[in-house]
Amino acid sequence: MRMTALAAAAFVALASPAFAAPASVDISIAPEFQKKIDKTYGAREATLLTGDLREAVEKALARTPAYDGARIELTLVDAKPNRPTFKQLADKPGLSMESFGVGGASIEGRVVAADGTETPVAYKWYETDLRNAYGNWVWSDATWTFDRFARRLARGGELAQR
């Protein structure tokens, strides 16, 4: 009898939404932006940006079962740094990490639900006022854009706009 109760409890726990397959998140970089990264920002920055976007989306989607079993395919279309990247500093000796500007990012993609339904998503935000520029590191405004996009996606805000 005890084994039956344990087996039933395990079945209920595994069948609950908390144990459903989380959404998979695939991040790519648009070819035009990849050229800009290679020429201007440095290849290292592509890894940083895609990692930050993936982390923001996965963290936000972990809080909601709405996308369980879905596939999120995102393309980083553009990003603008707040401070110079290592490559920019190397290419222009007079440039300093004290240099600061407005940044942001642009994201496009689609959500493929578990039932195969595809929904396009897009989000972009660039700071326009230097006084409001966020943070102190190279990709501060871009990271802020990723976090804001991820929160809106998790709430269904991006899907509701389509």
Results as ranks from 00 to 15, higher is better:
R54S: 14
E55Y: 09
F11L: 13
R54W: 01
K36S: 11
L76V: 06
K124G: 14
F19P: 00
R63F: 01
P31A: 09
A79P: 00
A113I: 01
T117R: 15
G69N: 10
G94Y: 07
A114C: 10
G94L: 10
S16Y: 04
A62R: 00
L76I: 09
A56V: 12
A79G: 03
A30M: 00
E127G: 13
V112I: 12
A79D: 05
F19N: 07
Y123H: 13
T50Y: 04
A18K: 07
K87Y: 06
P31S: 13
V77D: 12
D129A: 08
R71N: 00
P120H: 11
R110N: 09
D26C: 05
N82W: 08
P93W: 07
A70Y: 03
E55D: 06
G116Y: 13
L14D: 00
D129Q: 04
G69A: 11
Y126N: 14
D38I: 00
W125P: 02
L48I: 14
A30L: 08
V12E: 01
A56L: 08
E73A: 07
P22N: 05
G116D: 15
A56H: 12
Y126W: 14
V77S: 07
G42P: 01
L53E: 10
S24Q: 13
A90W: 13
V112C: 00
R54V: 05
A43F: 10
G101K: 01
T85R: 10
A30C: 04
V102C: 15
T85A: 11
G101S: 15
T47G: 15
I29L: 06
A105M: 04
V102F: 06
Q88I: 09
A9F: 05
Q88P: 07
D78W: 09
